[in-house]
Structures are given as structure tokens and as C-alpha cells.
Nucleic acid binder design. Structure first.
Lengths: 345, 345
DNA sequence: CGGCCCGGTGAGAGCGCTCTCTGTCAGGGC
DNA sequence: GCCCTGACAGAGAGCGCTCTCACCGGGCCG
């Protein structure tokens, strides 16, 4: 019962339409150079038989798969703790779908898995790859590049790509950080602290750089290193309060960290934003809106990032193995951020 | 330079090893019935040439793809607002990877997209599908079933599957809800309210049923309908406070809703848990741990759900088109939940 | 009026693999 | 010594599609 009726082939459609296989193929693939009468006849036959081309057979000869791999390194990290990834994926999916490409998801689980991913990509199962790799020392980018698959990275990879130009899409972490700190300064704050993210990630480094751009002469004690987690934020805030009791503003590397800081400030009896103003980063909604007070933060258009990554990759694929246009192609695209004002600053 | 060197074929490996294509094929696919000497020779040739089988060619003849589609309906909803989906995906990915299957992600964007998904599944590009569909009236499950692809659903679908047995994996929403309410009762609370989730989703219905199991004679005014959002939780809590000022406990259908309720309670000057105890559902970490006070809630093993879905599907695929074993196969697998005690109840 | 060109069509050769079927050789039973 | 058997190896026929190339006829140029 469940037996799948043998799927109709090109041959079957050709027979029914009274034409050759070649003609059916032409019609199915756009129908250029075929008389309208025949196009119509073929279309009808396709319809009646419920013909769907066999992708495997097609790929075998075209060497195209119309499929793109999305590689996410070490999902145990931050990636999975917030909707960031899901949103990006959605952007990617939309763009790929619009161009009739499939999305093959590859989640890596620890170092051993890298080899598997490398093998898969080198195996030529997909036309290109979209790679998310957070850590500076991650071997994945290089591995992917070596596999010879056209690739676009999500976030600036901490890797220069031995000569080849690395294409990536990132948020303007540095600019966003600058905006956040300037906002704080504009509020008249003079002792502005920064709780960093995990500094083995470019986003954290860039945000720190942005902070420094504005507070060039920052008291080094005003910078506390953390790791993008709430607990890390708490610890950092305690340290900060301890060594600089006069701190009157905090720019946290992300919302989770800011939430932790907020809690410590409340415990310490500091009023937010009156005594200490706080700004986060990400605009991670379930958190930013739920904190007390709601968090002023820097928003990035995450879905658009995903979309752009896909668009960049597809463009590359379209013009073949991105030959000598290295000079012209933009290596990195940086998306703007916006400051979202809520109650915390 | 970027030109991919022509990938070695079976033929090439055969030539190098001095055997026939058939023998290489046998070795690559397990190597049964081939003398050890030859196996070794072939292995060496494969290694030296860096041979990777062409999946397209293989699929063409085996009609197997070793790929599974994961279909997520309408990611605009709750699915994408929390790490739920990401965790499930991770479980699925782990299981699929362990069995050398690829994960093709299909996100649907509105109704029109259903057709696309149906076409894709019917097109025989994947061996099976894992489908997440939240809403009772979602046409997707039926569509997928009609496509004739072996399928496992995530969450109990609100659809009986005209005769065929629908396989799904779900959390014990009803049992978890019972535990939550019993916990509240055990605390001596007598006016226990329930803020429901969106009742067009089976999870919300099941949780409501669980509540009713324990508070059989519940005052109907103690039940306030919401929609799984924080804002909905706020509104529901206000209504509750309004019509039953003597409420001394609240079981919210999820953590987000509970967070909203918490805020309204604080505004209203009710102390939690002293005046009103609150329990959530999901144990959605960024929220449950950040609320004030931290939320007592019902945890579900989300990653395991994903894993189990994949396992069930692969089992089905292994024994061919799940023929007449309908009677024996379990239609639904329900995973247990556990109550996580924090400060709110 | 003959040769040419050109849009439109069909024939056929693979793409790289699997799998059946045939062939071979060694060993054992009679 | 002959035949049968069993364990391996190889030959070859496709899987369903694309794409090149040959072919055919009609309009056009000379």
C-alpha cells in the first residue's frame, strides 16, 4: 500500500507528449527554443503524470546540487542559548528558498566532528557553505577553505585566509559599541565601565575596541572581562563595584551579561539608571524586555545578516568558481546597528 | 586555481588497485566477501587518491539519499522565540550524524510555502521527514502524510491521521502540569489559578487538562486564557487579580507567561512566593533563571525529544516502507518532565 | 533555382555508481 | 578422476537525466 508508485521519468513524459526526451528536458528547464505548441503539450503531460525531476540524476550530470551547507561550530556555546542563531537561519532559509536552493544543516559536536564536516564539504555534496565560527582559534574556517567550497562566513572570522579573500557578513560591533558608549557619555556619565564578552571571539574584541574608541583614556580598572554569560556578568559587576565604587555607567558586551550586572547592582542598592546607567548589546528580546528595568541595548538585524550571507554566496555560485574577481569582490560586509532606548540608560 | 581537480571515480580507484569497479564498490560499502588482501589494496588506493563516493550517482541507483528533512512550520511563532527549537535540532542532528544521515532544513513561511514543502517531500529528495507543527488546524501534517514520506512529528499533532498511525514524540505536558499544580497544592495553596497557552496548540490544551486533573472542581474564574507570550501573561494576571483577589498560586503555561505574571504581581504589591506562588513550564533558561525571583518550573528534555524523533524515523527507514507493522509500532512516545524548584514556589 | 543559414528537434553518449549474473578456481565427495 | 559446490572476482546493464551534435526543413541571398 505504502509502496511508492514508480515515479514517472522524462521518458514517460516524452512518450505521452509525443516528443523526445531532449525536448521535455528543455521545457522543464526553462523551455527556450521550443515551439509554444510543444511547450504546452509537454507541460500538460508533466501535469497529468505528476512528473518531478530526479535530482540525483540531474546532479550526476550537471555537478550542481542546488544545495548549500550551513555549518555551525560548537553549538554548546552562546549560539544556542539565544534566538540569534534561529533568526539568522531563518534569513538564510528565506533567501535560499527564493533561489530554489536547499539548506543542509551541519552542526559540529566537538573537534572530532570537524573532520566529518570537512569530508562532507570536500565530498561535493553541496555547492557552497555558510559557516558560523565564533572562536579565534577555530580550525574550521581553514578546513572549509581547504575543501575548496565557495564559502561565506557569519561574523568576522579570526583568520585572515592565507592570501585568499575571505568573504564574511558581520554586524558593526565596533560602531554599535561606540554608539552605546556615546549614549552613556551623552547622559553625562563620566565613569563608564565595560564588561567584555569572551575575548576569543571577534565580536567581543570589536565591541571592546568600540568602547575604547570613545573612552580612549579609560581607567583600565573600568574594564572587566567576562564571557557573555549572566554569571560572568555578575562576577564582573562585583569586581567593578569593588575597585571602582564611583562607576556611574556600564556598557555590557551583551544583554545576558547586562542582566547579570543589573542583578548585582540591585543587590548592591544602586538604582538603575539613576545611580548607574546600563546598556547591553544584541537586543535579545526575551531578555532585554524582561529585565528590571528594561534594557537599553544595541540592536542588530540578525535575519538580514543571514539573508545577506546567502545572497553573497549564491552570487558567487552563479558566476562559477569565483575566479579572478578577487580584487573587485568585497571581502566583508558589515551591517549597521541601532541603539534601542529603554529604561536602563 | 580554484578549479576543482576532477574528482577520482570508482574506476580510477579500481585501476590503481588493479581490481574491478565492482570490487572497489564492495569494499567501499562494507567489504563483505572480498579477500583481505584485496580489501587492503583497495583501501590504500582510496586513501591515496582521496576518493569520495559521488552521492548523486549512488542515489540514482539505490534510491536512497541518507538525508532527512526537518520541517518547521511558521517559524514566526513561539518556536523561534526560545532555544527550544535549537535544542531539538541539536538532538536530531546528533542522532542523524551518528547514522550518517544529512539534515535538510525546511522552514515554511506562510501558507503558500506548504505547497513547496509538499512538492519537495513528494519529489523524493529525502528518505523521511521530521515535522514540527504547532497549530491544530495546520494543513502541513496531512500534506506531508499524503506525500507518502515516512514521517515523525514533534509534539502531538492535532490531527488523527485518517486511519494511518501517526508517529510522534511529545513531552508529558499533562503529567508535567499535574506535577506543577500538585506542588502548589502541597505548599498549602488553595486558590490555584492557571494561565493557559495558546489553545490552538496541543501542548497548551494538554497542560490545561493536567491542571484540571488536579483541581477538578476549579473555579472557572481561576482560568485565564493567554498565548504563551509575556504580554499575554501580564494581561491574564491582571484579569485574574481583578476577579479573584484571593488567588494564592499561579500555574502558567510557560516561562514567558510566568515572567509576565510575575511582573504584574510585583506591581500589584503581591510578594512571590509568600502571597502568590508561581510555577512556569519549559525551564527556558535565559528566562527562568533571570526572573525575580527565579522561577520554579517544569523541565522537559528537549534535546532528547529531538534525538528520539530521529531515532524513530531511522528505525522506520531501516525496515523499509513501514509496511503492515502498524499494529505493533508505538504511535506516540511521551517523554517525562521534571519539576525544577527555584524560588518562586 | 541552388546553396546556406538557422530555428527547432531528435538521437545517443555518457555522468559515477550498484547489482545481478556469469566465470573461475579450489576443494571435497563419489 | 569427474563433477559439484562454494567463495570470490569481473563484466555489463542500467538508474534518469543533460547536452552535444547531427538532422531537417523553410526562408533568404545571390
Amino acid at each position: 500500500m505504502t509502496d511508492t508508485a514508480p515515479r514517472p521519468t522524462l521518458e514517460a513524459v516524452a512518450a505521452r507528449a509525443g516528443v523526445s526526451r531532449a525536448t521535455v528536458s528543455r521545457v522543464v528547464n526553462g523551455g527556450d527554443g521550443v515551439r509554444d505548441v510543444l511547450v504546452e503539450r509537454v507541460r500538460k503531460a508533466v501535469e497529468e503524470l505528476g512528473y518531478v525531476p530526479n535530482q540525483a540524476a540531474r546532479s550526476l550530470v550537471t555537478r550542481r546540487h542546488d544545495a548549500v551547507a550551513v555549518v555551525v561550530a560548537e553549538p554548546e556555546t552562546r549560539v544556542f542559548a539565544d534566538p540569534f542563531f534561529a533568526l539568522q537561519l531563518r534569513g538564510i532559509s528565506k533567501e535560499l528558498t527564493a533561489h530554489d536552493n536547499q539548506l543542509v544543516l551541519l552542526l559540529t559536536e566537538g573537534r572530532d566532528d570537524h573532520a566529518r564536516v570537512g569530508r562532507y564539504l570536500a565530498g561535493g555534496h553541496v555547492d557552497g557553505a555558510l559557516v558560523f565560527s565564533l572562536h579565534l582559534d577555530d580550525p574550521l574556517p581553514e578546513l572549509v577553505q581547504r575543501a575548496g567550497v565557495p564559502t561565506v562566513f557569519g561574523g568576522r572570522p579570526g583568520w585572515s585566509g592565507d592570501g585568499r579573500n575571505v568573504v564574511y557578513v558581520d554586524s558593526d560591533n565596533r560602531g554599535g559599541a561606540r554608539d552605546a558608549v556615546r549614549h552613556l557619555a551623552g547622559l553625562g556619565r563620566t565613569r563608564i565601565a565595560h564588561i567584555t564578552g569572551a575575548l576569543d571571539q571577534t565580536s567581543a574584541v570589536d565591541r571592546l575596541d568600540g568602547y575604547r574608541d570613545v573612552v580612549a583614556d579609560a581607567d583600565p580598572r573600568l574594564i572587566a572581562e567576562a564571557d557573555f554569560t549572566p554569571a560572568g556578568g555578575e562576577r564582573a559587576m562585583r569586581r567593578l563595584l569593588d575597585r571602582c565604587p564611583d562607576v556611574d555607567a556600564v556598557f555590557a558586551a551583551n544583554d545576558l551579561t547586562a542582566a547579570g550586572a543589573l542583578r548585582v547592582l540591585r543587590e548592591a542598592g544602586r538604582r538603575v539608571p539613576d545611580d548607574v546607567a546600563v546598556v547591553g548589546f544584541d537586543d535579545m528580546l526575551p531578555v532585554a524586555e524582561q529585565t528590571d528595568p528594561p534594557l537599553t541595548t544595541v540592536r542588530q538585524d540578525i535575519e538580514e545578516m543571514g539573508r545577506l550571507m546567502a545572497r553573497l554566496l549564491l552570487r558567487d555560485l552563479d558566476r562559477g568558481t569565483s575566479h579572478e574577481d578577487a580584487a573587485g569582490a568585497p571581502a566583508g560586509v558589515v551591517l549597521p546597528t541601532t541603539l534601542v532606548r529603554r529604561a536602563s540608560a
